[in-house]
Amino acid sequence: MRDMDKTNTDVIFAGFGGQGILMVGNLLSIAAMEEGRQVTYFPAYGVEMRGGTANCTVVISDDEIGSPVVGHPRACVVMNAPSLEKYQSMMSPGGTLVVNSSLVEKGDVKRTDLSVLFVDANEIARGVGSLQLASMVALGAYAAKTGVVGIDTLCGCLPKVVSKKYEKFIPLNISALKEGASFA
């Protein structure tokens, strides 16, 4: 029914609050914009944010984007078990599922019609220097696997999403993206 090409796609990032879910969604969006693409980013907001879950939807296209929300995402990056539970059944057949296997049991992935990538994101992040980089690792893996944006573009856009206060951590973020990418 829909194009499954890498250039017109959408992805949901989901996990715990504090995992940097919204930040990686922002980074992907800005990178897509830098590459001349159309993009929409839609975060969960308000009450939905209470209780510690976070998710956002990014739609990327070369044409005008219609719906900013998607019923059947073509990709999901799930950083914890509840997120897998929530999103795997919604995904489009043939979609890309990136799973943080540090916090999600591989056996919990029931769909057989998806392209699944398990990334031990917490462990890799810890190795890079901080557990907080786990989502960045997963983003690197997702971007490399799908080719939706260049890893170099993501790295180049980091200063636009990292606040001045945390500027010194940009090199660590770059390492995390590249580690994740090498995993794909």
């Binding site: 969006s29 914009m33 929409t40 980013y41 839609f42 975060p43 907001y45 900013p68 929300v69």
Partner: peptide, 10 residues
């Protein structure tokens, strides 16, 4: 509405 308010786009 909330979607158009919270949504980011270039």
């Amino acid at each position: 509405d909330a979607i158009i308010g919270q949504m980011k786009e270039p």
